[in-house]
Computed example of a mutant assay.
Amino acid sequence: MRHDDPGLQPERTSLAWMRTGAALGAVVLLFMRFVPGPGPVVAAVGLLCLVPSVVVLLSARIGHRARVRGFVAGDVGRLWWRNITVAAAVVVLATATAVLIAVDGLA
């Protein structure tokens, strides 16, 4: 499907979301590797935060076609839930990291 956007905005947006999902996944893997604490707790938090990364990656790919159709129709929908999902995962990771490091420092 062709659209009249010479700047290829749908492609840039999809690629930006894919980079965001990949970066979040990398941060989660670093969390799981380097944050001290009980293994099951670190694994549970890591896997919980890895799910949004996969969802963002998949939705960027699937949402690309919808974005192109929206540009052609002149109506681009906003997927605000992705912003909230990424922000929530970052807050959970940061809080868990701070708590696990503090608890490990006390021990």
Rank of each mutant, 00 (worst) to 15 (best):
P36N: 05
G37K: 15
G37L: 08
G37C: 11
P38C: 07
P40K: 02
P40Y: 05
V41I: 15
V41G: 05
V41C: 06
V41L: 14
V41Q: 06
V42E: 09
A43D: 14
A43V: 13
G46C: 03
G46I: 01
G46S: 08
L47H: 14
L47I: 15
L48Q: 05
L48I: 12
L48N: 00
L48K: 00
C49G: 02
L50A: 15
P52K: 14
S53Y: 03
V54M: 14
V54T: 11
V55Q: 03
V55H: 09
V56R: 12
L57Y: 03
L57M: 15
L57T: 01
L57H: 09
L58E: 10
L58W: 15
S59W: 08
A60L: 07
A60P: 09
A60K: 05
R61S: 14
R61G: 14
R61L: 11
R61T: 10
I62F: 13
G63I: 09
H64G: 13
R65K: 04
R65P: 00
A66W: 01
A66N: 06
A66Y: 06
A66C: 00
R67G: 03
V68E: 08
V68L: 10
R69P: 00
R69L: 11
R69V: 04
R69E: 08
G70A: 11
F71Q: 13
F71L: 05
V72Q: 10
V72R: 13
G77W: 00
G77V: 06
R78D: 00
R78A: 11
R78Q: 07
L79I: 00
L79Q: 04
L79E: 11
W80Y: 05
W80Q: 04
W80I: 03
W81H: 10
W81C: 04
R82G: 03
N83Y: 06
N83V: 03
I84N: 04
I84M: 05
I84P: 01
I84C: 07
I84R: 13
I84E: 04
T85G: 05
V86C: 02
A87I: 02
A88H: 00
A88C: 07
A89N: 03
A89L: 05
V90Y: 07
V90P: 02
V90S: 07
V90F: 03
V91W: 08
V91D: 07
L93K: 06
A94Y: 12
A94T: 15
A94D: 08
A96E: 07
T97I: 09
T97D: 02
A98W: 09
V99L: 12
V99Y: 06
V99M: 07
V99A: 12
L100S: 11
L100N: 12
L100V: 07
L100C: 12
I101C: 13
I101W: 12
I101F: 04
A102V: 05
A102R: 10
A102D: 08
V103M: 14
D104N: 09
D104R: 13
D104A: 15
